[in-house]
Design a protein around this nucleic acid. Structure first.
Lengths: 132, 132
DNA sequence: GACAAATGATACTATTTTGGTATCATAAAT
DNA sequence: ATTTATGATACCAAAATAGTATCATTTGTC
């Protein structure tokens, strides 16, 4: 089970790299050569980060990406939600439909409590913590 | 993201049903008609529970399955590990290989702490808690 | 003993999610 | 104009999850 999938992971690395080179514009090419992430996949990831206002993009020659916010404002939770959707540990199998399963509902309630705490912890971890 | 996949979920339901009918032998047919779980899938699940000593099996006519242990001894963690493998939230992408990514290692450490707590909580939830 | 009703074992298939590629359009520096 | 970047989007591949199918074996009943 993966709390963090590969695209989120790559995003973390790319952003941390960019954080080291603060304010500088970093191109996909540079990131590819430094981080060894497949180029088109990384491109897609950076575009997603752009759409979510984590990165600014500069088109054209000499262009690339740039962090928009301070790294202590970017949490792992946020990145997870960009790439993996709304963070939920206990999705009911019978979403929408009337749940026929009281047992599972009890379990979901308990998992819901765990989820709430995990969510808080993930929210508290920022890129800054990873760069140290 | 699913903390509990479908086979684990079905196992929970089946076991809870059996717990209600304590000591009785319950056949796949009965479980299928009560719980509306696809028969061959449920069979596979019950066989796994048998292999892991959660259930005893009685072959032949009138046979079926029977709980071996008390329901307060069967944790959700145990069931998750039977059906989803060893519980881990932070599997490194570079398992085996020398990890080239110190950032991710820092993240893994933090996730490792979360994992430890989630694991403990899942261990503390038993079937008894779900039957109430 | 034959038959029916159950599980044991195991191989196969289908669906969904994850992890990518490929391609064409658009923008900006030279 | 050309080159070097990103934007958008459709497509493809691999892995994980969910489920089927089939044959073997055991055991109770007639």
């Amino acid at each position: 089970m993966k709390l963090v999938t590969r695209n989120t992971d790559y995003a973390v690395r790319a952003l941390c790299y960019m954080a080291h080179n603060k304010k500088r514009i970093v191109s996909v090419s540079e990131l590819v050569s430094k981080l060894k992430i497949p180029r088109p996949f990384l491109r897609k990831i950076l575009q997603a980060l752009h759409k979510n206002n984590i990165l600014a993009s500069i088109k054209g020659q000499g262009g690339g990406f740039q962090l928009t916010s301070k790294i202590d404002k970017i949490s792992i939770l946020k990145l997870i939600e960009i790439f993996q959707g709304h963070f939920k540990l206990n999705e009911c199998i019978f979403k929408g439909i009337r749940c026929p399963n009281i047992i599972k509902c009890r379990l979901n309630k308990k998992i819901g409590k765990i989820e709430k705490r995990v969510r808080m912890e993930l929210k508290s971890i920022t890129l800054e913590d990873l760069i140290g």
